[in-house]
Computed example of a mutant assay.
Amino acid sequence: MIDRIFYFYNFVVFTSIFIFMILIEFLQLFLGGHGTFIGTFDKADLVCFTLGYISIVLISNCIHKSNKPDKKLFTFENKKKEFLYNIKIIIIFAILGVLPSLF
């Protein structure tokens, strides 16, 4: 998200992932427990998710304001490439996030 052409699109994707993770954490509060696939609720997770989200948004916002991308880069082809790149990254990290709970 820090150095992307379509900053607002990436911001929306990143924010939706953050909200999804917070919802999963509260789902763990009501449905989770030791030994379940869902996991256990932890306030430290909420704090770390929030601090990480705020720091990445602030850093990327400062970098994006100081380094405006060239208007020639705003093409449909670049938007399609960036969308596919984001989907690939989301899938990779979703798999990496699930792997520790399988063992």
Rank of each mutant, 00 (worst) to 15 (best):
T15L: 07
D70Q: 11
L73Y: 09
L73Q: 13
Y9Q: 09
T75A: 06
F11P: 03
L58N: 02
K80C: 06
D42C: 15
T36I: 12
I90H: 03
I54C: 05
L31D: 09
Y9I: 04
F37M: 05
E25L: 07
S16M: 13
L23H: 08
I19N: 14
I91V: 11
K43I: 14
A44M: 15
L46V: 10
K80D: 08
K68Y: 06
N86L: 11
F11L: 14
F37E: 00
I59P: 02
F74T: 00
F26L: 04
G33Y: 06
D45A: 12
L29Q: 12
F93T: 12
D70H: 12
I17P: 01
D42L: 14
K80V: 10
K88E: 00
I63V: 15
L46M: 11
G52H: 01
D45F: 13
Y7P: 01
L27C: 09
M21F: 13
I38A: 07
G39H: 06
G33S: 10
F41H: 10
F49S: 01
I92Q: 08
I22D: 02
G32H: 11
Y7Q: 07
N61A: 05
C48V: 07
K65I: 01
K43R: 13
I59C: 05
Q28N: 02
I22F: 04
L51T: 10
K65W: 01
I63R: 09
T40H: 08
M21C: 11
F76T: 14
H34S: 14
T40Q: 14
F18R: 11
F41T: 05
I63P: 03
L73V: 03
K80W: 10
I91E: 04
F37W: 03
L31S: 10
V57M: 15
F41S: 06
I89Q: 08
G52L: 02
L84A: 01
A44S: 15
P69T: 02
L27D: 05
V57H: 06
L23Y: 12
F30D: 09
F26P: 00
G32V: 11
Y85W: 00
F93G: 02
V12C: 07
K43M: 15
Y53W: 15
G39R: 05
G33M: 09
F74L: 05
F49N: 04
L51F: 13
F26M: 01
K65S: 02
C48A: 13
F11M: 13
N10V: 03
I89D: 04
S66K: 15
L51D: 06
G33E: 10
G35F: 06
N78V: 05
G33K: 09
F8S: 14
F41M: 05
I38F: 04
F76P: 03
S66V: 13
V57Y: 09
P69I: 03
I89T: 07
N78M: 07
I59S: 08
K81W: 00
I89M: 12
K68P: 04
F8H: 12
S55C: 10
T36G: 12
G35P: 03
V57S: 09
L73W: 04
T75K: 08
K81V: 00
N61P: 00
I19V: 15
L51I: 13
V47A: 15
N78K: 07
I54S: 02
K68E: 11
K71T: 10
F30G: 10
F49Y: 13
E25T: 10
V47I: 15
F83D: 07
E77C: 05
G33H: 07
K88S: 07
